[in-house]
Design a protein around this nucleic acid. Sequence first.
DNA 1: CTATTCATGTAATAGGTTACATGATTAG
DNA 2: CTAATCATGTAACCTATTACATGAATAG
Lengths: 188, 188
Amino acid sequence: MIALAYALLCMLARKPCSGYELTKLLQVFWQAQHSQIYPLLAKLEKEGLVTFELIGQTGKPDKKLYSITDAGTGRLRAWIKEQPPSDILERDEFLIKIYAIGLLDPETGRKLFLERREALLARLARMQEGMKGMEEDEDPPVADIASKQFGRYLLYERRMRLLREEVGWIDWALPLFKPSSARPRPEE
Amino acid sequence: MIALAYALLCMLARKPCSGYELTKLLQVFWQAQHSQIYPLLAKLEKEGLVTFELIGQTGKPDKKLYSITDAGTGRLRAWIKEQPPSDILERDEFLIKIYAIGLLDPETGRKLFLERREALLARLARMQEGMKGMEEDEDPPVADIASKQFGRYLLYERRMRLLREEVGWIDWALPLFKPSSARPRPEE
DNA sequence: CTATTCATGTAATAGGTTACATGATTAG
DNA sequence: CTAATCATGTAACCTATTACATGAATAG
């Protein structure tokens, strides 16, 4: 079973969701399109790892509210323990561009960094919003291991730290650009 | 043209490499298998963006040493400027497991974190090695924008900072496990 | 002797994206 | 009026992984 299936199961372990909602929530740590998620949910339902209830709505289209089953929880638990740690896949075109930064004039290079900085801060702000929403009147506080939000809280904290650190890296890198080579480098 | 093609071009802009070498070097910031790289290099060669020279070796198999052409450099430059920033793709099964950490007993959860910590430190050590190799007698020092290594140096610094920050996150998270809930949580 | 490194390639399959398809409601 | 949001699905296509294939040299 593919990792995405476990990603869906772990979201449903926190609370029942529609496929639409899962698609949105999943973006934070495992990107996938709805065209991949809907058929996969149907497959998981056939295998008895999730069930759904059809919710009729007025004004909005009807939806299928999926819940995890005991079998689903079992499979997820087993996967977490059995599976050896897979290696991390990261694909970020920005990194390619930085690698090739020597081909650009320093001004274009700096612009690349500044744009990235903006994007990172915007994402950080969004995460802080999400964090706020999470913390509001939770009975077992989110930072408590007993909270249903605990895992999610940990991931939010991680992402925010990494975003801040990347901003720090940019602020470290920017001064390397300007002062030394004000003279434009020879175009090859 | 797919992003991997630009990743190959940017590596070749620094120095000529064989497909085999590219596969290894690329791991650091854009993972791809040799089975994807060899055919792509052949395609880039047909399009005139790279050329290769057949190097006969004794003791080792012969190799094709690829170099970027002026057309290739031009295409790479254009892509860096034109392409709007694509969103980042990250797929890390560890994150799924953390999300679902509430399903596990705290001890298993802690183990997950400690294993990750080890893996991060191992990777950090490898990066520090690579960094050392880079810094040794480079004429324009690597931190100089004029160095051919500059882009690579920036990425190494970034990765090392992010790795350290993730270790920091783990050290922040670990105390949340142990002390409060020594009592095992009810299995659902 | 067994595994790893160097080195290149192809074939089969799985995974994932973009596009097509529909349709009411609400916000700007 | 136009775009976005909610909501689900399928089809076509592209991207990427795993497996198959070969083979000498060296390290353990």
